[in-house]
Design a protein around this nucleic acid. Sequence first.
DNA 1: TGTCATAACGAACATTCGTTAGGCAAAAAT
DNA 2: ATTTTTGCCTAACGAATGTTCGTTATGACA
Lengths: 188, 188
Amino acid sequence: MTERKLAILQIAQRLFMEKGYTATSVRDIAKSAGVEPASLYSHINGKEELLDRTCFEMAEKFLTGIEEVNDIYFDAAQKLKMAVDTHVNILTNHIEAAVVFQRDWRHLNEVRRSEFIELRNAYEDGFRVIVQNGIDEGIFSDVDVKFAALTILSSLNWIVEWYDPNGKLSASEIAANLFNFTFTGLKK
Amino acid sequence: MTERKLAILQIAQRLFMEKGYTATSVRDIAKSAGVEPASLYSHINGKEELLDRTCFEMAEKFLTGIEEVNDIYFDAAQKLKMAVDTHVNILTNHIEAAVVFQRDWRHLNEVRRSEFIELRNAYEDGFRVIVQNGIDEGIFSDVDVKFAALTILSSLNWIVEWYDPNGKLSASEIAANLFNFTFTGLKK
DNA sequence: TGTCATAACGAACATTCGTTAGGCAAAAAT
DNA sequence: ATTTTTGCCTAACGAATGTTCGTTATGACA
């Protein structure tokens, strides 16, 4: 990906975050890039490519993260800590892309949307594995695994709605708080 | 509000839920209502009215709920239980409107968006009061109040992303699970 | 010097957008 | 029985949508 193309992608992500994918026009993006609308098409295939790249690049980051955690660590408490940490880090380090990833994946075309949902399910599965591990190890209480994983992910995902890079809580503080909260909610 | 107007509003809410406010056209709504686009304007002032009503009617429901809880109950644990219960009930009983309320309030016009955010803050404040009560009563551990309230609300709000009226978990089971999880995460 | 790739341009494309105007038939109110 | 209201219609509006077109200036490389 060219430097210029990357710059355009980032501009688009910022606008998508601010106004949403559908409400952001190609002309908006062009204006922010200081270029005529038609000129964008020297770099991209179309508006949807910008959404597609954003969603799938983020999905890959998340998925790689959870796979590493489940590969490397053994103890469920450690795994949970690392998974939360990784999630919060990816999210806060790419906040614009993360917001788009969370909110606008619905506007992918049918085929890509299906693929996206599969990746998302795989990621959720990674968290279910952790919860199940904890139960098997006897350190988590015997909760509904699916529900617990979903609730943890709720807290993690909602961060995009309030995270402020200049706010008083740093990414690692947020991660620590969230691990503490979810772990206490789970442990026996 | 006329019967017909209410029907149109509900049709719009279903479509807004499925495709998002911006991606739903007046023609889509008209088609679903079995009517020509122009005919809708006998009943509504414009597309935005449908979004506006949805957002503010839901906001009022939530706000009334939390105010009642904080008025009636005394003990923080009871309050939390009732607040979670009320939230889950409003949400599951009006799932289409709830989804729109969650996702599309950003597309309100500037003035109404500000008003909406104020209501939302007031609601969050209601939860902060509960957490603070619990700390003062000595039954909750000494957490960051703002952060805790936000995390609880994350779990509650994320329900709209996965709730299935025909799923295996009923609204009251969801509420019970969520209270259990958040309460355990908070208590000393 | 001639050839090619890059990145931009202005103009235009067909389509869709939310909305308005004006009329017409049936139902409700007087 | 006459008037008014209701609910819908067809037709059209101006604006905005994503995208394609042919062209051009620039600069690297042969």
